[in-house]
């Protein structure tokens, strides 16, 4: 009888990680939907807290939408590694022969697919409620899609650092939010530029540059942080 070696290439492992995470997350739909509900809820709070005046709301809408989406992403970070840490599959990920940064990157990709991307798709809807001018909807969705990928990557560093702690929630936001500031600036700036009729391209390009840099550096930091959290 011939023994068939299991395929252990990097592509196989990455595909398997993505498939596993997608399956797991789609079975726990609440965790996918909750950030979206949170996003809608926070946006509902602003007109109640500030004023229902559409002119005023339209003016501050780009910033509000971006801040709310950023907070929603940040709140969803904890699930990124938590259940894997609790059931021990994170240790298996660390022991895998494939490079950890690549595997971690595929986990972050799933997080973005199920958090950042839905937020970006949903944002124009909330933009309507805030009387955001129609011209800026495409830019709003695009900037959120681009920016939330960086948010997921940077946030994963914080999530990996705090995953070993029993109560890491507030600490996680303390670590991550200062690092989110550049993305917020360029993301909200892009929408603002679109509202004013200027070209949003420079902002989007900078968001892309930040994403490229985060893609390059963050996986290694996440991997190092996970090793610290697991090995102590």
């Amino acid at each position: 009888m011939q023994v068939v070696e299991p395929r252990t290439g990097l592509a196989v492992a990455v595909r398997a990680t993505i498939k596993r995470d997608l399956t797991l997350m789609l079975r726990r739909r609440g965790e996918v939907i909750n950030p979206l509900v949170f996003f809608a809820l926070v946006i509902t709070l602003f007109p109640l807290g500030i004023s229902p005046d559409t002119a005023l709301l339209a003016e501050i809408a780009p910033g509000l939408l971006w801040v709310a989406a950023l907070l929603a992403t940040q709140l969803s970070l904890d699930v990124l590694f938590r259940s894997d840490f609790d059931d021990g599959s994170l240790e298996q990920l660390l022991l895998a022969p494939q490079p950890l940064p690549a595997l971690v990157l595929s986990k972050v990709l799933v997080h973005w697919l199920l958090t950042g991307l839905p937020l970006a798709v949903m944002a124009p809807l909330l933009g309507i409620m805030l009387a955001l001018p129609v011209e800026s909807y495409a830019v709003l969705a695009l900037s959120l899609a681009l920016g939330s990928a960086s948010l997921s990557l940077i946030g994963a560093i914080g999530a990996a650092l705090t995953v070993g702690l029993a109560r890491g929630g507030v600490l996680l936001s303390l670590l991550v939010l200062p690092l989110y500031i550049p993305i917020l600036i360029f993301g909200a700036g892009a929408v603002q530029a679109a509202v004013l009729g200027a070209s949003a391209a420079p902002h989007l390009a900078l968001l892309g540059a930040l994403l490229a840099m985060a893609l390059m550096l963050a996986p290694w930091a996440i991997a190092a942080a996970l090793r610290i959290s697991i090995n102590g």
Partner: peptide, 26 residues
């Protein structure tokens, strides 16, 4: 663990400080 985690965060922070500085200026 605390020492290692803080070291990683300090390194991440030092990469980010120039980015934050210039984005805030912009």
């Amino acid at each position: 663990s605390g020492a290692k985690a803080a070291s990683v965060l300090a390194l991440v922070g030092v990469v980010n400080i120039p980015i934050i500085k210039y984005s805030v200026e912009w």
